[in-house]
């Protein structure tokens, strides 16, 4: 299905770009007239995916993060966050709540947060090739606030 509108963004995997990445997607989503909660859901989910690229995919290097987003019928927004980093050995394990390969300050909740704030989260990864995270959410809009 062809999106009604789409955008692309390429950023370097520097942590200072986390705020930029999530803000761009949130600004793009604004055309769906989301309510405050929905815009926070998108900002948070994108922030998790971009952070994963920075701390995991390109753990010891700086590489490109490709963000694509498309708007579809019925208020659906899809967001793809792709990297050409190290890839995930075991995606199912990586998506388990509280599982982290880093320990310490990382809660191991990145995917759990994405799942709780989006309708669908899909992860495709290949060792040594990279990872694509696809988020999907239906925006009900500001009329649904009440």
């Amino acid at each position: 299905m062809k999106p009604l509108n789409e955008m692309r963004l390429k950023i370097e995997s520097r942590s200072v770009n986390e705020a930029f990445g999530r803000s761009v997607v949130a600004a793009f989503a604004a055309q769906l007239d989301p309510n405050v909660e929905e815009i926070s859901d998108i900002r948070t989910a994108v922030s998790e995916a971009v952070t994963n690229c920075i701390v995991h995919a390109y753990a010891n290097s700086v590489g490109p993060i490709y963000i694509w987003s498309g708007i579809y019928e019925n208020g659906i927004i899809k967001i793809k966050i792709r990297d050409s980093g190290c890839g995930i050995e075991d995606v199912r394990k990586a998506m388990e709540p509280l599982y982290t390969t880093l320990g310490g300050e990382r809660a191991g909740l990145g995917f759990a947060v994405m799942e709780s704030f989006c309708d669908k989260v899909r992860v495709r990864s290949k060792k040594g090739i990279g990872t694509v995270v696809t988020l999907e959410k239906r925006i009900k809009g500001r009329d649904s606030d009440a």
Partner: peptide
């Protein structure tokens, strides 16, 4: 005004 799972990690730490 905004927090992702890094805020949870901060509290856990």
């Amino acid at each position: 005004s905004f927090m992702d799972s890094s805020g949870i990690g901060f509290v856990m730490g």
